[in-house]
Design a binder for these strands. Structure first.
Length: 501
DNA sequence: AAAAAAG
């Protein structure tokens, strides 16, 4: 079994890692760190929750340790799609760079330029940014990117969703050809592939996917709510009843709504009913967002009512419950949302409210997660539990979601990642891994039984899901790895195709 | 019919 100490990381980095208590790298870490340390480009295909962040911060810190930044000329650059994710990377960097003298700056929107300017002027080793604010600084002539040695793109597919790709291309163009690029995406849509073909050179490709689309630690439920969509008060009350019916088990929770308006309304109704809740969405000012999130993290706030700002990537340990006030309209978002609970091997509960007009989206979700989400009877009657199945079957025996571990040829993660770490520039031959899901998060116990050798018989393109609608019902073969096949249709399309549809 | 990010 590979240990962090086998990875050739700088001693001071290793020390910081040890202090966090982690010993065993996750598959993405074991796969990405060695080639990154050799100076190679890395293409990491991994979801959030696989330990991705450390897979680039650790080698970066190791490599940057020598040398010092000049004024306005950062030596490395990390781009993330949302402010919160950028901030999270910055925290991760702080944790692992604490025994080094490296400096960093976090450049995100919604906060004043002044402090950011001062840091840049002083010279930083690591710049962590959202694309808009970075370009803003650049255009004001405050930033020179010609000394960037390492550039990281995190959550590239989300950047694509958010229309950041032109900005990303532009930023690539501002950095030197000779830079090393570490590029991470959950899926390889054609547009993403085009970017990587253009800007990466002979990358080591590491692919890691979740073992199951949703963690087995998460107990799921749905309430089919027939109440009128016109009357928000009914739905608010239903939500509160659901929370109540969970009793003490519900220590805290995130309530996801599809619209910012509803985020505010739900938060208000909860507060009014005496529940400790605060809203978070993109219209709230940044310092407020940060404060709310911090409060939720440290337990002073019990309920976070959120838009999809908070759906992806955010690592908040110890979230006992996720409530989907609305059915998300992209099935993939469901997985991201409920993945905020059941993290790091802990148990979690995810309950969703589905109204009649959401049923189509709901069907998509059930198809994506490949299970029937247990129906929760309307509360009012006390505490119908969220998972009828639990009496008969202990949670480790849910056959439907374990297809990825069905194969022969199981290998230990260590063996597997070694293969991955060697030269794998050729896409088709890159071995794939099924990652442990939530547990992998904390780098403590990658599960060998989740690892499986993938025969490379499947044409690359079919993973993009172009034909997904037709194929879904009858071709859910075991080749599916991670969300490649489950990506929403549009993700697989080029911009031109999207305009056509 | 939405959210996010630059203002």
């Amino acid at each position: 079994m590979t240990k962090f100490s086998d990875l050739n990381l700088d001693k001071k980095v290793l020390k910081a890692v040890e202090e966090t208590g982690y010993e065993t790298p996750t598959p993405i870490q074991a796969g990405a760190i060695p080639p990154a340390l050799e100076g190679r480009d890395v293409l990491g295909i991994a979801q959030t929750g696989t330990g991705k962040t450390a897979s680039f911060t650790l080698p970066m810190i190791s490599m940057l340790k020598r040398g010092r930044a000049r004024a306005r000329m950062p030596r490395s650059l990390v781009l993330a799609p949302t402010r919160e994710l950028a901030a999270q990377v910055a925290e991760n960097f702080d944790a692992y760079a604490k025994h080094t003298k490296l400096t960093k700056a976090l450049l995100i929107g919604g906060v004043s330029f002044k402090e950011q300017d001062a840091l840049i002027d002083r010279g930083v080793d690591v710049l962590i940014a959202t694309p808009g604010r970075l370009l803003d600084h650049f255009e004001r002539g405050k930033l020179i990117l010609s000394d960037v040695k390492i550039m990281v793109i995190d959550e590239a597919d989300r950047m694509l969703d958010m229309g950041f790709i032109p900005d990303i291309e532009r930023i690539f163009g501002l950095t030197p050809f000779t830079r090393q690029t570490l590029f991470f995406s959950a899926t390889m849509a054609p547009e993403i592939e085009r970017i990587t073909n253009t800007f990466l050179s002979n990358p080591a490709k590491i692919e890691v996917a979740r073992a199951a689309t949703t963690s087995e630690n998460i107990k799921q439920g749905v309430v089919m709510f027939k109440g009128g969509a016109k009357n928000a008060a009914d739905k608010h009350r239903l939500l509160r009843d659901l929370i109540k019916s969970e009793g003490d088990e519900c220590r805290n929770g995130i309530i996801f709504c599809n619209r910012k308006i509803d985020v505010d309304a739900v938060a208000k109704s909860m507060t009014k009913a005496g529940l400790d809740a605060s809203p978070i969405h993109g219209d709230l000012d940044q310092s407020h967002r940060m404060k709310t999130l911090a409060g939720f993290r440290d337990g002073t706030l019990r309920f976070l009512v959120a838009s999809d700002v908070a759906a992806r990537g955010l690592d908040i340990p110890n979230v006992s419950h996720v409530f989907n006030y609305d059915v998300p309209s992209h099935a993939e978002d469901y997985v991201h949302r409920i993945g905020r609970t059941g993290r790091a091997g802990k148990k979690g509960t995810a309950i969703m409210i589905c109204v009649p007009r959401d049923e189509k989206n709901f069907d998509d979700i059930e198809r994506l997660v490949e299970m029937t989400i247990p129906r929760v009877e309307m509360p009012g009657a006390p505490a119908p539990k969220a998972e009828p199945k639990s009496d008969e079957a202990p949670s480790e025996e849910k056959p439907k979601r374990t297809r990825t571990r069905g194969g022969r040829g199981r290998k230990s993660d260590a063996a597997k990642t070694e293969e991955t770490a060697v030269e794998t520039p050729k896409i088709e031959d890159a071995p794939k891994q099924d990652a442990p899901n939530a547990e992998a998060e904390k780098a403590d116990a990658p599960k060998a039984e989740n690892t499986r050798q993938e025969p490379s018989d499947k044409p690359k393109r079919s993973r993009g899901g172009r034909n997904r609608g037709k194929r879904d019902n009858n071709d859910r073969g075991p080749q599916i790895v991670g969300m490649g096949d489950d990506a929403p249709d549009f993700i697989a399309k080029s911009f031109v195709e999207r305009q056509g549809s």
